[in-house]
């Protein structure tokens, strides 16, 4: 059992992060080096600057999707924004964000309240958004008929990560922030297996393992759309 724990808690994170970085960089590099004659669609941004602005609008506001499917736009935009928020929120588990916030003038109570309030709400909202995305995928024929196993799995994996995350926040079992932070600090400084006590929390263990699994498969999956979007819109919008 200890070996499994060690593999999952002490080895997987490194493997996942390395795989993610190398494979993502490789895939983006292979996209970037290809010849890319533009195939302009009109109305098109007038110049390079306007084109860059358009790509940003697509990436941040999902501009095209807004015109194409307003309902999906709502689900997906909320999903992604909250995902980003949660990503930022997780920094607090990895590093001592608290002390930075405190020097910026926030009290310990205020930080706790923000984490509990915003973080808690985010956990609920993203769960709802994920369920809606999945429901839509199963309910609408035009989406269902093009859905493969990988599409469902991606959503289920994300869903499982969200549920275990919420269990730690809302569940009866106490989640030990200090201990977890120590564990990640040790991972980050290659400090061996101290702080593995955090792994005694089964829910945390599952949450963490699934999250690193997700990180590891991203570069091989359609989720790498967050990198591709900066290329694909240029293809059809540049003059």
């Amino acid at each position: 059992m200890d070996l499994v724990r060690f593999m999952l808690g002490g080895v997987l994170p490194y493997v996942a992060v390395v795989v993610f970085i190398v494979a993502t960089a490789h895939r983006i590099y292979t996209w970037k080096r290809l010849a890319a004659p533009s195939m302009t669609l009109f109305p098109a941004p007038a110049d390079d600057k306007a084109n860059k602005k358009n790509v940003l609008k697509e990436a941040l506001l999902f501009r095209s999707l807004f015109g194409g499917d307003r309902v999906l736009w709502g689900f997906a935009w909320v999903f992604h924004v909250v995902l980003l928020l949660i990503f930022v929120g997780h920094l607090r588990v990895f590093t001592n964000v608290d002390s930075i916030l405190m020097t910026a003038g926030m009290s310990a109570e205020a930080i706790q309240a923000m984490s509990g309030g915003v973080g808690g709400a985010a956990g609920v909202v993203i769960l709802v958004a994920t369920v809606l995305l999945l429901a839509r995928r199963l309910a609408l024929p035009r989406v269902r008929e093009i859905t493969g196993a990988a599409d469902i799995l991606a959503l289920l994996l994300i869903g499982a990560i969200i549920v275990t995350g919420n269990m730690m926040r809302f569940g009866a079992e106490h989640f030990d922030l200090a201990l977890t932070r120590e564990y990640f600090a040790n991972l980050a400084t290659f400090g061996g297996v101290t702080g593995q006590a955090a792994l005694q929390n089964e829910v945390f263990m599952v949450h963490m393992v699934l999250a690193f699994l997700l990180i590891m498969v991203i570069p091989f999956s359609k989720i790498l759309h967050f990198g591709g979007i900066f290329f694909t819109h240029e293809l059809v919008r540049k003059h």
Binding site: L34, A36, A76, V143, I146, G148, D151, K222, F231, L235
Partner: peptide
């Protein structure tokens, strides 16, 4: 390549739009 060919092979979230 060209880039469009490859990107279109690797970039679709199957959203049905």
């Amino acid at each position: 390549g060209p880039r469009a060919m490859r990107m279109y092979m690797e970039m679709c979230v199957k959203c049905g739009t």
